[in-house]
Amino acid sequence: MPELGRNVPEIEWVNTMKTIKGPAIFLAQFADDEAPFNSFASICRWAADLGFKGVQVPSWDSRLIDLRLAAESLDYCDELNGLAAEQGVQITELSTHLQGQLVAVHPAYDETFDGFAPPEVRGNPKARANWAADQLMLAAKASCNLGLSAHATFSGALAWPYIYPWPQRPAGLIETAFDELAKRWRPILDAFDNAGVDLCYEIHPGEDLHDGASFEMFLDRVEQHPRCNILFDPSHFVLQSIDYLAFMDIYRDRIKMVHVKDAEFNPNGRMGAYGGYQSWVERAGRFRSLGDGQVDFKGIFAKLAAMDFDGWAVLEWECCLKHPEVGAREGAAFIGDHIIQVTDRAFDDFADAGSDEAMNRKMLGIGG
């Protein structure tokens, strides 16, 4: 320790780290026609009673939000924010997962994904894609009106049926698919840029953006667009056997949203990553409630703290075994226990001997 009375310049340790906000919960898996899940106010109160501080809102669910009105009316957005605050939570982000999926749909999935669209555009892929793009444009304005900084979506997929290279893919097939994907998304990304909101693609099997390599292919084609970012959900990396902690290091500057979801992967002599066409219960890889799977959340939350992530830790509940309301209740406590309150001082401040430039030069033997 420095001697008392020694003339040492006072050096203040400046903390630049940020504490993650949370816990929050994605409402998509809970919205229902039965109370308390059938209105925005009541589902917010339910979430707050479980200990959640924020709610992520699925923009396609009219029981919770009128997306077009939110894009057009600041008064309506103020009302929504006020309603959430009255119940003890705040809106963290909006989601357009279902609409984003429809921006790009391979014909093999036309009938399957038609159910995500309103009746007037079903059976018409071009009209459906235009409707989806318009929904994203509305979401950009609505997010801005709500004072939000990030938005969750899916990329959709044109190349997904060709994920496995058999039969051999024709030369240029994947490049053409990604060129078209970027063409469709570029005006949407520009709209989010104008709104001051990050557009975060959930890296997810079934989407053309399903891992780091595919995200980079897309990012290159949208010219490193500043609003082209990532919703990080480690569960989808477990099922693909991707090192999700290394992924966080590589893409730390693009990770703007986080879904906290658990998963397990237990390959055996009968099946692996592809799952053998089995149900979720029988698959080698399956989603689990928080704490019941294999995800290293201590490692994830440590990296989020170190990389100055100041967004929300949002529970996305999906589990083939546990009841959703049990998973939600346990999940709030689980996230709360894992959020790291970052330090406001260096742990070795007690040993600070102080310094100045002259001392530093003397200690290095480089003179005056």
Rank of each mutant, 00 (worst) to 15 (best):
64 L>R: 10
320 C>K: 08
15 N>P: 15
27 L>C: 09
169 R>K: 13
99 Q>K: 06
1 M>R: 09
205 P>T: 12
363 M>V: 00
90 Q>G: 03
137 M>E: 11
33 D>M: 10
199 L>M: 10
112 T>N: 08
145 N>T: 07
50 L>F: 05
315 L>Q: 07
84 A>M: 00
288 R>D: 07
343 T>Y: 01
192 F>Y: 13
338 H>G: 09
207 E>I: 10
37 F>H: 07
319 C>S: 15
294 Q>S: 11
325 E>I: 04
341 Q>C: 09
170 P>R: 01
55 V>I: 13
139 A>L: 04
215 F>M: 11
41 A>H: 09
46 W>G: 00
14 V>G: 03
29 Q>H: 12
67 L>N: 02
254 R>A: 02
19 T>Y: 09
213 A>R: 06
344 D>L: 04
326 V>Q: 01
141 K>C: 07
80 L>R: 07
70 A>N: 09
21 K>M: 06
4 L>W: 14
100 G>M: 06
278 Q>T: 05
40 F>E: 01
103 V>A: 03
332 A>I: 12
29 Q>A: 14
354 G>S: 04
95 S>G: 15
106 H>N: 14
215 F>V: 12
318 E>W: 07
135 Q>R: 10
186 R>F: 12
284 A>T: 13
218 F>Y: 15
22 G>F: 09
121 V>Y: 11
353 A>G: 06
219 L>I: 14
67 L>G: 02
140 A>H: 12
68 R>C: 10
127 A>K: 10
103 V>F: 02
352 D>E: 06
352 D>T: 03
88 G>H: 00
26 F>A: 05
187 P>L: 05
295 V>E: 08
289 S>M: 08
125 P>F: 04
261 K>M: 11
46 W>L: 02
302 A>G: 12
249 D>T: 10
9 P>F: 14
363 M>T: 01
291 G>R: 11
32 D>W: 12
365 G>D: 09
136 L>P: 02
46 W>N: 00
94 L>C: 13
299 G>L: 09
206 G>K: 14
261 K>L: 11
258 V>P: 03
55 V>E: 02
168 Q>I: 03
221 R>A: 12
164 Y>R: 12
162 Y>F: 10
225 H>I: 15
132 A>P: 01
65 I>M: 05
231 L>Y: 06
105 V>I: 14
67 L>Y: 02
10 E>G: 06
263 A>V: 04
161 P>R: 01
49 D>Y: 06
142 A>V: 08
159 A>G: 01
117 A>D: 05
336 G>M: 04
292 D>R: 13
177 A>F: 00
23 P>T: 10
80 L>Q: 08
342 V>F: 07
5 G>Q: 11
205 P>L: 08
86 E>V: 00
254 R>W: 04
354 G>V: 09
45 R>F: 07
350 F>G: 01
51 G>A: 00
96 T>M: 07
279 S>I: 08
124 N>P: 04
198 D>S: 12
306 A>C: 09
245 L>C: 11
83 L>R: 12
137 M>I: 08
21 K>F: 03
297 F>Q: 14
9 P>I: 15
3 E>T: 11
340 I>A: 09
10 E>N: 11
319 C>I: 07
31 A>T: 12
349 D>F: 13
62 S>M: 14
255 I>L: 08
